[in-house]
C-alpha cells in the first residue's frame, strides 16, 4: 500500500463518512419550526374537533343536526364556507370564531394554567 492508497483509505473514507452525516443532519428543508416556550405564536388560530359518531346510536339528545358541522373529514378547522341561511352575518374576528351560534351552557367550570 503506497502513500496515496493509505491517504485515501485512512483519511478519505472517514472524511466522506463525516460529510455524509453532516449532510443528513443539516440538510435544509426538513426542519419544522419547533415550539419553544417564550416564542411568539404567529400561526393562525385553529380549532380541532373529534370525528362525529357514526350510526344512529349516538345517544338520545335530539337530532344530530347538520347545520353547524364542518364538511371536512376528521379534525378540521372552523371557518369553512357554510351554506346556512344564517351563515353570513357571523364574521367576528378571525376565522376560528365564525363557528355556530353561541348557546348558553349553564354555569361553566374548568381551570387555567400558565407556564
Amino acid at each position: 500500500m503506497n502513500v496515496a492508497e493509505t491517504i485515501i483509505v485512512f483519511v478519505g473514507i472517514p472524511l466522506g463518512f463525516v460529510v455524509l452525516l453532516a449532510l443528513l443532519i443539516f440538510l435544509p428543508g426538513r426542519k419544522r419550526p419547533r415550539y419553544k416556550p417564550g416564542q411568539p405564536w404567529e400561526h393562525a388560530p385553529v380549532w380541532y374537533e373529534p370525528h362525529p359518531e357514526h350510526g344512529p346510536a349516538a345517544g338520545g339528545h335530539g337530532t344530530p343536526g347538520h347545520e353547524g358541522q364542518t364538511k371536512a373529514i376528521g379534525s378540521s378547522v372552523y371557518g369553512e364556507p357554510s351554506h346556512d341561511a344564517h351563515g353570513s352575518q357571523e364574521h367576528a374576528h378571525g376565522a376560528a370564531t365564525a363557528a355556530p351560534r353561541a348557546v348558553s351552557a349553564g354555569p361553566l367550570g374548568g381551570a387555567r394554567g400558565t407556564w
Binding site: E49, G62, A99, P100, R101, A102, V103, S104, A105, L108
Partner: peptide
C-alpha cells in the same frame, strides 16, 4: 369559544 363549540355546549 366554548359557547360556540357545537350544538350542545
Amino acid at each position: 369559544l366554548h359557547a360556540r363549540s357545537g350544538q350542545n355546549p
